[in-house]
């Protein structure tokens, strides 16, 4: 004798299982953020956000780290976006899906999965020592750029591939050259997808610790140029917690970092939404 479940019952069971999975995921997410906020929110004050760091972080604020984080991330994205998008355009529009494209795509996929500490080590040896850039915002940005380029290439590649062939045909049929077509049709149409890649890149770069601790350094001074060493928020948090300097300040720092990431994502999605609304 076999025990059979009716189709209605199995529908209900599947629904409940899927709902449970979603709820668990969301609970875990909110628990982490909630836990950090609960411990860190009390630390937030005007002084914490606008003061220099004193006594290794035990006292004072985190303004140098906020500025350093934004500086390093923005510079990394400025370096990585043109390189990544340019490569993606080349791969899709100029290599016609040959062996070269498959090799580069495979390589990019592998690179995207390499642990960030490997990039940190590479950046230390190449940018900091070999190119004599020292521990600096520039070294950190270059390392982060190398780290996020594969993500930007792959997402941009998919976005560009998704542009319908008919758009290209119209452009050519109106006398457009390849460059006109890429610049005025392919890139604007694939912009939302490309932006997604850039946002993912920003997300990876802004919270990165291992890759920048070796390259941007951990100096607490106020950064003055791209050659200053800096301590990003994630590194500051790591050092405060690991060295047991101040758990309160560590949670405060984490809270600020999470708020910045939420803010960046919010703005990016608003921008994307406005762009999509305009044309689609």
């Amino acid at each position: 004798m076999t025990f059979r479940i009716g189709p209605r019952t199995s529908q209900i069971i599947a629904y409940i299982i899927l709902l449970l999975m979603t709820i668990i995921t969301i609970i875990v997410l909110f628990f982490i953020i909630g836990y950090v906020f609960k411990n860190g929110f009390a630390q937030l004050s005007l002084e914490f956000l606008t003061d220099r760091t004193r006594e290794m972080g035990k006292e004072g604020g985190i303004l140098p780290s906020i500025i350093g984080t934004l500086f390093v991330t923005v510079l990394a994205v400025i370096i990585a976006t043109p390189l990544g998008v340019g490569s993606a355009v080349y791969l899709v529009e100029y290599t016609r899906g040959g062996l070269l494209r498959r090799i580069i795509s495979f390589g990019a996929d592998c690179l995207a999965g390499v642990p960030s500490i490997i990039f940190g080590l590479f950046g230390f040896i190449f940018f900091v020592i070999q190119l004599k850039l020292g521990w600096s915002i520039l070294s950190g940005s270059l390392t982060l750029a190398v780290m996020i380029i594969p993500t930007i290439i792959r997402t941009s590649e998919e976005a560009i591939k998704a542009v319908p062939l008919s758009y290209r045909e119209i452009s050519y049929s109106l006398g457009g050259g390849k460059l006109d077509t890429i610049w005025k049709v392919v890139l604007p149409t694939s912009l939302p997808g490309i932006l997604t890649g850039v946002i993912l890149g920003i997300g990876r770069a802004i919270g990165e610790t291992a890759a920048v601790i070796f390259t941007a350094g951990s100096s607490l001074g106020m950064p003055t140029s791209v050659f200053s060493s800096t301590r990003t928020l994630a590194v500051h948090f790591y050092i405060l917690a690991r060295e047991g300097i101040s758990m309160e300040k560590a949670y405060g720092t984490a809270t600020v970092l999470i708020i910045i990431i939420l803010f960046v994502n919010f703005v990016a999605y608003r921008l994307m939404h406005r762009f999509m609304e305009r044309y689609y």
Binding site: P164, S166, Y167, I170, S173, V185, P188, T189, Y280
Partner: peptide, 8 residues
């Protein structure tokens, strides 16, 4: 072309 294919 066959389909009306305005650019977005």
């Amino acid at each position: 072309f066959q389909r009306p294919n305005a650019f977005p």
